[in-house]
Amino acid sequence: MAAHSGLRPTTAPVVVESLVRGFGPKGVLNGVDLTIEEGEFVALLGPSGCGKSTLLRALAGLDRAVSGSGRIVVPAERAVVFQDSRLLPWARVLDNTTLGQRGKAARDAGRTALREVGLEGREGAWPHELSGGEQQRAALARSLVRDPKLLLADEPFGALDALTRLKMHELLRKLHRAHQPSVLLVTHDVDEAIKLADRVVVLDHGRIAVEQVIDLDGDRDPSDPRFAAIRKELLATLGVGETTASDLRRESA
């Protein structure tokens, strides 16, 4: 592998170097470099089909069957949240939350996590008895139980209605503050990225095309002019004008 120019040794928990991935002859990622610091919240933006999920799945170790090269360093304590909540329909909510963990300590941790995401009292419910937002909360609880150093989330709120999504943003922000994992959030919602992330990266043509540190403090208000400025810039790099921003948000990958 060719040495990458300007690459310093790093202690960052997540390091991706010259990552190449493709399906058959078609290249999807052609040399992605990305570092995520401890506790850093990174949002990954990009048009549908540009390879966001491919990158996230590589970090999750879910791409056995995909050809490619490059170097990936990730902590062993990872958790993945998918766009669908992916709760096992035959397991009650608490059992879903503690999936992969055994013993009383795990069940207590599961209860605590459910309380944290606001699902106290629903431990014994079947997944189909929960609303879409609640199902996604349960999925978040399942990842919390694992006390991850890296949280990988692939458009976790993409299937939720706008109001529920706003609530979930608050929840995710709260959980990130409380547990301080590194986060890679894949999203196609520019506002969501600006609101939640410390840094936004844009994937384009198989590479990280743009990096934007979000140095807004406090409650990030979309009507804040600085917020709007960042949004305009990001939308421009995505090749989209303001008018189509809402379409982009609605589109799902």
């Binding site: 999750a60 170790g61 879910l62 958790a79 669908d84 992916r86 999936l99």
Partner: peptide, 24 residues
């Protein structure tokens, strides 16, 4: 997708059988 989920939560073979395969 459930198999994938089982991989991400590091299910052991037995747990995979018990929690995913048999109920499924």
């Amino acid at each position: 997708r459930y198999v994938e989920l089982a991989q991400t939560v590091d299910l052991s073979r037995t747990d995979f059988l018990r929690r995913v395969v048999l109920p499924g």
